[in-house]
Design a protein around this nucleic acid. Sequence first.
RNA 1: GUCCCCAUAGUCUAGAGGCCUAGGACAACUCCCUUUCACGGAGUAGACACGGGUUCGAAUCCCGUUGGGGACACCA
Length: 462
Amino acid sequence: MQQTNRVRFAPSPTGFLHIGGARTALFNWLFAQATGGKFLLRIEDTDTERSESRFTEDILESLRWLGLKWDEEPVYQSHRFDRHREVAADLMKKGLAYRCECTPAQLDAVRAQCQADKKPFRYPGTCRNKQLTAEGTVIRVHVPNEGETSFTDIIRGPITFKNSEIDDWVILRGNQVPTYNFAVVIDDHDLKITHVLRGEDHINNTPKQILLYKQLGFSVPRFAHLPMILGQDKAKLSKRHGAASTLEYRGMGFLPIALINFLVRLGWSHGDQEIFTMAELKAFFAIDRINKANAVFSLDKLTWTGGKMMEIVTAAELFDYVNQYFADSVAFLNEYPRDQVEEGIRIIQAKVKNVLDLIEQLNCLFGADPVHDLGSLKPGEGPGIVQTLREVEPILAQSDFSKADLEAKLREYATGKGIKLTPVAQAVRFAVTGGKVSPGLFEMLAVQGKERVLRRVKAAAK
RNA sequence: GUCCCCAUAGUCUAGAGGCCUAGGACAACUCCCUUUCACGGAGUAGACACGGGUUCGAAUCCCGUUGGGGACACCA
């Protein structure tokens, strides 16, 4: 009987969920989906100073927006401190951990000395054999000096560290709050995590954790360290790299499926395929197809992916999406029947790159009448447009406003005048939108309807 | 500085020793389509970091160099 895979996404609420974290969550989620496993969420709020509930909210909302549903109740490490302390006490009892009374100032001095000597800093073991019992002191694990600790990373293969490179690190702070490396081991064990998929920046923590798993008699999970996502300057993603939160991409008008498609191709591939449906991702995702090299974030590629997804999603889905996340900016649609709005979406969606552009175009279809600023036109262009509109107005008045009839009548007019359709189309477009960019003219006019179009043409022809 | 990881075009990637005169995609440029903007179509330019091995044969394996990234806290 094959055991069920259990993975977790374990962000710390000390900042917004950036794009790298979002991809880590995505890969964990996809792995669970692809293998019929469970995807858990654990909030690593052991840094009581810097953790903030607004960050937790941001993380949860980001995951919800992306559709990465977690399978069990989220676990907060801060609710489990008693358990962590219990394990620390047990470790002390077994002589595998000890109290340390070195002050930060003393350690800083050692650190400075090491730096001066160009040697790596390691806790010198000052208190290792002091048998201190004072409450309120730090507790360290006793790490063996001899031997090596190695593991086989699913993505990278065997990785080995010399134990002598690892020092006796702190597991419980002076205030008796557990540190990250300590809490992870206990919580991953208690949650029966089978695979740990996390950023490459955790490779160095892994031997510390493995040593602890063994000291505690816990079985060690499998590890897969994902390549990082770097900023345009190829440095680790941080605040200065544009968007701080994944949610900002929602604000920019990207669909969640667009961000997912973009992120999944950073470090993972399935032949030459660039665009995937969710169903395809769930079917195709394989952990051994993840590559090792870091990837640079590209807004250009994301934008392209976003445009692709706008074409693939149905008008009905876009209607619902826009009303869910951009309710305020699409309030003007409420007076129209859903069918009509969806028809409008259909003629726009293939040409816009994101939801913001979609809304802008919807506004030109269904929003308030445009302002006709002749000054926005090229010099000398205005009079011709006004003239054309005056001549075209009676023609439009006779149309049944089907797409075909509108096109036939306007083409006939252009031919009769011995001119190309272009200036005629641009004149009407200007009248109807106040600008020079819009969906296809005839389908747009059909969607807008006779009354509105004639009103706008009259207004522009004044 | 020490340790760890990585290395195909500006960017994301395909490539598991001969299928590679290195394939796809984004971006760039050219042309076509066209009622605008997009889309779409056709093309152009652009890469196996370097040096040694191993092998009949290396983008693919090994070593070194260089380059990049990450970690070195009572942060995660």
